[in-house]
């Protein structure tokens, strides 16, 4: 049994299944983070006082993390472009860098979190810290998910390049879209939580 439009695009939508599915998933993710941003605004508007993020959080660390994530966004799109140009070796390099960036991001995040805990700051301390830990925690889980998917595409999943390069390229593109979305969320999280 063959499922239609796994590789060849559908004549009406111009898309293959995976890409359409991924965009639908992203639409759902927009609503998830949208609801959390909405909660943030509501809590902030309601608060008697709201601390400036920079007085509590580590802005230089987060700035560094922002640059790391932006860099990984470039490398993941480069890895897809390498496949489009039939250069599998380059693909592996770029995908490897992407995953490394993701790990760097999480390690920096780990140090940020532990520094807060060492100062006795936790979600129970204030509504600001609570929303900070919740949204960045959920974002970190998304990064982890990205590491798993990209790691699969670099490791065991890469075998598909030999059997079905087009479907493999499609998968890398879909994983890339997800990864850009994770980057996109951080681009908004960073100023909202750290700078305002």
């Amino acid at each position: 049994m063959e499922i239609p439009h796994v590789v060849e695009v559908h004549p009406e939508t111009g898309l293959a299944n995976a890409k359409l599915g991924l965009w639908l998933f992203l639409a759902s993710e927009v609503m998830l983070f949208g609801a959390l941003f909405s909660s943030y605004i509501l809590l902030r508007v309601a608060a008697v006082e709201w601390p400036a993020g920079s007085t509590i959080l580590n802005v230089p660390m987060a700035t560094f993390n922002t640059l790391v994530l932006i860099a990984s966004s470039v490398t993941v799109v480069m890895s897809w472009a390498s496949l489009k140009m039939n250069d599998f070796a380059k693909y592996k390099v770029y995908m490897g860098i992407t995953i490394a960036c993701a790990f760097i991001f999480l390690i920096v995040k780990y140090f940020e979190y532990t520094a807060k805990f060492d100062h006795g700051l936790s979600p129970a301390s204030s509504t600001f810290l609570a929303i900070y830990f919740t949204i960045t925690g959920l974002h970190a889980i998304h990064i982890l998910g990205g590491i798993v998917v990209n790691g699969y595409l670099l490791g065991p999943g890469a075998r598909m390049w030999k059997t079905d390069p087009e479907q493999f390229t499609g998968r890398v593109e879909a994983a890339g879209l997800y990864w850009h979305f994770v980057d996109l969320v951080w681009i908004f999280l960073f100023p909202v939580l750290y700078l305002l």
Binding site: L36, S39, S122, P123, A124, L129, A130, I131, F133, T134
Partner: peptide, 14 residues
């Protein structure tokens, strides 16, 4: 649900 889980498990006050 995530916010309520934070409230119940990690003691936040959403």
């Amino acid at each position: 649900g995530t916010l309520q889980l934070m409230d119940r498990v990690f003691g936040s006050s959403f």
